[in-house]
C-alpha cells in the first residue's frame, strides 16, 4: 500500500541535499552520488553474461586481496 502521507519525489530539495551531505559526504566532498545498488544487482543477475563478468571481476579482486594479505603475513 502506498503511503501518500510521505512525500514521494525524485527531485531533492536543498534541505535534502544538505542532509545527505551531512550524513554521507566527506569532509572535502561537495557532492553525493546516489547509487541504486539493488537495481544494479538485479540487472547483473538478470543477464547471464553480465553475471559471469561480475563474478570473474569480483573473484579477481578477492584473489588480489588474499594475495596482499598473504604477502603481509609472510612479511
Amino acid at each position: 500500500m502506498n503511503d501518500f502521507a510521505v512525500k514521494n519525489s525524485h527531485t531533492l530539495t536543498q534541505y535534502d541535499i544538505e542532509k545527505l551531505l551531512r550524513q554521507f559526504g566527506g569532509k572535502e566532498t561537495d557532492y553525493v552520488e546516489i547509487v541504486d545498488v539493488e537495481k544494479n544487482r538485479k540487472t547483473i543477475e538478470k543477464y547471464p553474461l553480465l553475471n559471469d563478468i561480475a563474478l570473474a571481476t569480483t573473484q579477481t579482486q578477492s584473489t588480489k586481496k588474499i594475495n596482499k594479505n598473504a604477502i603481509k603475513n609472510h612479511k
Binding site: V35, N40, T43, I44, Y47, L50
Partner: peptide
C-alpha cells in the same frame, strides 16, 4: 530495456 539497464549499471559501476 537492455540498453537502459546497461547504461544505468555503467554510469554507477
Amino acid at each position: 530495456e537492455l540498453e537502459s539497464d546497461l547504461l544505468q549499471l555503467w554510469q554507477t559501476e
